[in-house]
Design a protein around this nucleic acid. Sequence first.
DNA 1: GTGATCATGTAACAAGTTACATGATTCC
DNA 2: GGAATCATGTAACTTGTTACATGATCAC
Lengths: 190, 190
Amino acid sequence: MSLPHAILTALLEKPSSGIELTRRFDKSIGYFWSATHQQIYRELGKLEQSGAIRELRRQQPSQGQKKEYEVLPAGRAELAAWVGRIEDPKPIRDALLLRLRAAGVVGAQGLDAEVGRHLALHRAQLAEYRAIEAHDFGPERASPGDRVRHLVLRGGIDLERFWVGWLEDAHRELRDMAGETGTGPEPTAK
Amino acid sequence: MSLPHAILTALLEKPSSGIELTRRFDKSIGYFWSATHQQIYRELGKLEQSGAIRELRRQQPSQGQKKEYEVLPAGRAELAAWVGRIEDPKPIRDALLLRLRAAGVVGAQGLDAEVGRHLALHRAQLAEYRAIEAHDFGPERASPGDRVRHLVLRGGIDLERFWVGWLEDAHRELRDMAGETGTGPEPTAK
DNA sequence: GTGATCATGTAACAAGTTACATGATTCC
DNA sequence: GGAATCATGTAACTTGTTACATGATCAC
């Protein structure tokens, strides 16, 4: 139940068309909630039908076939209610941790390369976040909205720092093991 | 495409029935890949049909209606191939970070309580992981399999440490802001 | 023997993914 | 005016969730 709220947030920040939302979901909002354009169009339809958003008529009507949407009071109210709603954290679902666990049973063949690849990706993401931080947030006392936005960004940064740290550890360990014992499976008990 | 591999891993660690797998997915494997019993039964059916697992006939046939499964060579081969497969990390999808971002637009009413609640849950999870670590892993030189299992656990620990740290930060910041300026929405630009 | 629970399963739905279709506009 | 692309959308499928159904076994 988070996609509609992600869209409402994005539309409150700036009224947009489906394609513009899609682009913004490739960065910014999408750092924490990704979505494809098909999901977005489907959800825009539902939100419009439920009265949370409406199509915005622009000044120049010759603007191609773009349909811009804006949030209605009902949509804003729903979003505000959702912010404080009691909702348990979803259990983690991470395929790489799972793959490592599988490696403990069937051997780590090929995993160190994958771990290295993921490490590079997370390092790049971390660098991107840090660049945004340096650009958008200074040391001065900021408005509440800015402080919240900075807090969200720090969440992203710390999460990537976790990944980079752990993946470095994993990479080292896997290389060690490959050197010592080969990457074959554990001797089975039976 | 991870659930079947999670099940294969669990079955290699120990042949089990559907209900036993379900229980193990509430801890252990489930720390990184959760699943309900309906998903598990559905997937067991598919895996059996594709020849990756088969029903295991037990010694005492009077064991109620439990059906235990074991992994066949094809299943083990598929799992080993998956471990080293190239597969990009899924973009993060976290509702709490998203809610905080929404709070930057419509106000943080009620969010500090939610953040406090999540903080407690993550602290509990961290404590649970640490207890497992203290119980299962000593300082001595371990077998490759144990080292991999410890690495996975450290991943879980570090991830929870990230959450606890960031949530403490967020909780402090939200309390500050509530004291200073109220929790209402940002003054809108328009 | 009956009520609780255990174990397996079905059905219906919601959310997310992948592939493709269609009309409009822009570039040359 | 034909090709490239932009923007919206459909269709089919997979994965995950919620609610319920069924038979077996256990406790008393």
